[in-house]
């Protein structure tokens, strides 16, 4: 990742969450990996927690989004209502266009 990564997505864009369980600190929950959702909010860039966890205090910034998913597609046997949503805050380097 470069120092000043530009936001690649806008509210309304469809995105897929990348998958992977690298043996280090990550903040992308396993249950949402591989799922497709919609960008709801672009907050701003924050210090990347994945390098902060290892002592990096440099300018390594990661754009952060709130991504909205339909509960019915995330969980096969979801018992709630069709309109129910789950929103997860995800850093840009975990997202790809869908």
């Amino acid at each position: 990742m470069t120092d000043a990564e530009e936001p690649r997505f806008r509210p309304g864009d469809r995105v897929r969450v990348l998958t992977g369980t690298p043996p280090r600190h990550i903040r992308t929950p396993a249950f949402i990996q591989g799922q497709t959702g919609v960008i709801e909010v672009f907050y701003r860039a924050f210090k990347n927690p994945e390098s902060l966890a290892y002592g990096d205090s440099g300018p390594n910034m990661a754009p952060l989004y709130r991504v909205r998913f339909d509960q019915g597609t995330v969980w096969r046997d979801y018992q709630g209502c069709p309109n129910d949503k789950i929103c997860v805050d995800i850093y840009q380097h975990w997202l790809e266009p869908a």
Partner: peptide
């Protein structure tokens, strides 16, 4: 109510 959209917010990051 089933008419209401239930939105779960998972605060995984800096918010």
């Amino acid at each position: 109510s089933e008419e209401v959209e239930l939105r779960v917010l998972d605060s995984t990051a800096d918010i």
